[in-house]
Write a protein that binds this DNA or RNA. Structure first.
Lengths: 182, 182
DNA sequence: CTGCCCATGTAACCTGTTACATGATTAC
DNA sequence: GTAATCATGTAACAGGTTACATGGGCAG
């Protein structure tokens, strides 16, 4: 039950249309809560029906016309309630760790290529985060809002850093191709 | 599409009944790929229908009777194929980071209690992992299989360590209760 | 023989994914 | 005017969650 709250947060940061939101869910918010445009439109409909958001009045909100939404007081209250509510951490699911565990049983043949690819993807993501950090969080800005946003970004940076280091170790653990059983 | 492969891995490590698997998915494999008993029974049925596993022959495999499964050669081959296949990382979804981002907009009132609870949960998980490490991976055992399994466990340890450190920082960033607007 | 737990399973629902559909705008 | 793209949406499906059902064995 987090997608509606991700959308409320995004809309509070800036009122947007469905497509705007879709774009913002490809970066920024989407770095830790991804969503496709189909999910977003579905959820915008629900949020509007519940009275949490409303479409900004425009001329012709017909098909093919942009429709921007803003958060209503009830929506802000709901987000506040959700933020403060106790929530149990969701069980983890990490396909890569599962694969390594499977490889311990059936062998590591063929793994290396994809591990290197993942390593590369994490390096790119880290570079992107560091770019954002340099651009959006120059030293000195210490408003409460900026500090919290920076904290979230640093979580991303440190998680990517962890995966890069871990994948590097993992690649060292793999037997040389020459040693692999066929 | 990872649950069937998680089950194949678990069954290769040790043939089991549905309930055994359920228990093992509450720890061990379940630390990075959780599943409920309903999912497991559903998936066991599918895997058996596909010829990847089979029920070990017993007297009366009726309702209420334990039914143990073992992996067939086709199942091992499928797991091997999956392990070596390229897989894109799934998009992240982390409710806690989302909440912090929401809190940057609607305020941090009420957050602290639950952050402390999460911190405590992560500390317990880390302690559990370290216990397992001490028990199952004493220094000196360096079979390829043990090294891979240890690598996976270390990922868990380091991730928990990260969250503990991050949550500690986050709690320091929160304004004092006295400063919070009502 | 009642209540409780073990073991397997069914059903309904919710969320997320993939593929496709439709109207409007812009480029050529 | 036709093709490509923008913007919003529908439909079908897959995976995961929650609630409930069924039969067997065991403790008192």
């Amino acid at each position: 039950m987090s997608l509606p709250h991700a959308i409320l947060t995004a809309l509070l940061e800036k009122p947007s249309s469905g497509l705007d939101l879709t774009r913002r869910f490809d970066k920024s918010i989407g770095y830790f809560w991804s969503a496709t445009h189909q999910q977003i439109y579905r959820e915008l409909g629900k949020l509007e029906a519940e009275g949490f958001i409303r479409a900004l009045p425009t001329e012709q909100p017909a098909r093919g016309q942009r429709k921007s939404y803003e958060v209503l007081p009830a929506g802000r209250a709901e987000l506040q309630r959700w933020t403060a509510a106790a929530q149990d951490p969701k069980p983890h699911r990490d396909a890569l760790l599962l694969r390594l565990r499977a490889a311990a049983v059936v062998g590591t043949a063929g793994l290396e290529t994809d591990l290197r690819r993942h390593l590369d993807l994490h390096r790119r993501q880290l570079a992107e985060y560091e770019e954002i950090e340099k651009r959006d969080f120059p030293p000195g800005n210490d408003s409460a809002q900026a500090r919290l946003q920076h904290l979230v970004l640093r979580a991303g940076i440190e998680l990517e850093t962890f995966w890069i280091q871990w994948l590097t170790e993992a690649l060292e653990e793999l037997p040389e191709p020459a040693e692999q059983a066929s």
